[in-house]
Each structure stands twice: as C-alpha cells, then as structure tokens.
Amino acid sequence: MGKIKVVHYINQFFAGIGGEEKADFKPEVREEVIGPGMALNAGFKGEAEIVATIICGDSYFGENMDEAKAKVLEMVKEYDPDLFIAGPAFNAGRYGVACGTITEAVQNELGIPAMTGMYVENPGADMFKKDVYIVSTRNSAAGMRDAVKKMAPLALKIAKGEEIGSPDEDNYIPRGIRKNFFTDKRGSQRAVEMLLKKIRGEEFETEFEMPDFDRVEPGKAIEDLSKATIAIVTSGGIVPFGNPDHIESSSASKYGKYDIEGVDDLVEGEWETAHGGHDPVYANIDADRVIPVDTLRQLEKEGKIGKLHRYFYSTVGNGTAVASAKGFAAEFSKELVEDGVDAVILTST
C-alpha cells in the first residue's frame, strides 16, 4: 500500500489569510501543506501525506452552510483521498461547528474515513461527537503540538480501518457508545473500592456518567373534551391475540397499529400483551386494564369525549432503547396529526 492520501480542512486564520476581517473567505483548495498541516504531516511519519488543503472562512461557512458544505465536498471528492482531517479547531466555536459539519458529511456522504479535533467545550463537540471521532484538544492554539500528537495516530488508525480503542487510549471525545468489556474485578469489589474512595474524599471514576435526562413538558389541557378525538398509545404491549407483528417481549424493534373500530371491550382470547416485563396474567384476562378502551367507549357514548380514534399504537417498553422508542413515536405522531387526533392517552406498565 502506498502512502495514505489526506485532504486537510482549515479556516482562514490557520491558513494565514487573516482574522475576523477575512472570515467571509470562500472555499478554496490549494495543493500544498499549510499551517497545522505541516505538523500533522510530520506526525504521520511517512505513512500518510496531505495532498491538498481546503480553506474556508468561518463566517462564510456558518452563513452559507449548505452551499459551503456542497462546495467543500466537491473539492474533497476530486482528490478521492483515503482520509479527511479537519482542524483542530480548539475552542473556536464557528470553526468547530464547521469542522464537525464537514467531517460528518465527508464520512457519511462520501464514505471517506474522516476525523477532526477540538476542545471538549467547543459547541461543535456536543453537536458531532456522536457521529465522528473528535480528538480532545486544549482550548487554544498553544495546544497545537499536543493536538497533533494525538490526532495523527488516531487518523492513521481510522484510515487503515484498525480497531479504535477507548476514548482514553485514543484521545477522542467519548461518542456515548456503550460497549461491554471484562475487567479483572467483579462488580461488588469495584463498588466497595469506589465507596471507600468516595468516603475518603479521594478521586474516583464512575463507570457510567448520568445522562442529561430528557424531560418532556406536558401538553396544554384540552379545552373541550366533548369535541376531541382521543387516541391511545401504549408501551404496555397490548396486541391482537397471537401477536401478529411479532413485537418482541423486550427490546422492541417495532410497534403495531391496530384497528378498534366497533370494539367496545377488549376481551380475553382476542387481545393480549406481548410485554415480558410485567405479570401478563391480569393484562391477558382484561387488556382494558392496560389500555382503557371500554371506559373510553363509555365516555364516547355519554358524549364526554368526541371520539375514540379508530387505531391504537402499541409497543413493548421493556428494555427498549430510548432511541428506538423516539423513532417509533416520531413516525406515528405524524399519522396521528394527519388523522386529526387532538389528544393521546399514553399508558405504560
């Protein structure tokens, strides 16, 4: 294999074109190694080589995102590189966002291995750390040497398709992807040691950082229920008997949409739960306990609610990834809106 061909992306400042007054500089490609590229090239130790440098002003990129991105992608494509590197952007916010945006696009739209580097508090880091490898750098260009020392080896690994180590081993900002591994101590022992450190006020490392929890504001109250169309959505796993869509008993990969036109009561033997995380006996005897179709029909007859929506949506919440649940809801919420549903009763188990 010959040398790994690299295209490098930098902003107008690191290209030596100018500061804020030149931030509207339009994308331009030069077949040379410029600024931080010199140090990167040296860091590759002959294994890789920068064949072109793309320069773009930060304001230009930020204000003309689609256009700038398309233009840069076109330039990258022309060189058909084995690797794309952007930055490092340190704590420069617009530059960081540009680096993240373009790295993600090169990786996902062109399928070319790509990476960037920036300070962990750069807004670009939060936006893109899940999508691309971002080497964790210091907050200013004074950290250039350190940044390059970390970026060059990871870049080579990415280009060669080698297995990437942990964030600590390979110096990137954690992407939030959880992977199992075996340690040399059982969990209880790790807990006792962590507790002793915590008691003594020593530094300890949690094995799992608490996530920023996604809390949803309740919607506005319905002013006139007697005119409202109400739908049922459940994570309690109620399905027609036999579970025709084979919704999993845990870690569901799908949801079902079921017609309850003319159904006044969910009776045993016609409906059941697919959920494996609760005692199914009572749900199977009377599925209305999980989704109150009988009560809603009654309220419909009494005119207290306008209408019970013809379909209900159901999945299994048990062990189901939040990302999957969000995906299901994003899809069927559109249908609910299109069908003129005013409110949803969400039940869980």
Binding site: I177, R178, G187, M210, S251, G319, A321, V322
Partner: peptide
C-alpha cells in the same frame, strides 16, 4: 444498562446528578 443493540441509546430510564458513583 439498556443502551440499545448499538450501544448508542440512553441506557437508564431515570437519572440524577447525585448518582455520581455507578458500577455497571
């Protein structure tokens, strides 16, 4: 944790900053 098959999803159904020492 239940972080999805790809490990990319939020792994717990509840969280609090006071839970700062976790063994998984």
């Amino acid at each position: 944790e239940y972080a999805g098959r790809d490990g990319a999803s939020q792994p717990l159904a509840d969280a609090d900053p006071l839970a700062n020492a976790v063994v998984t």
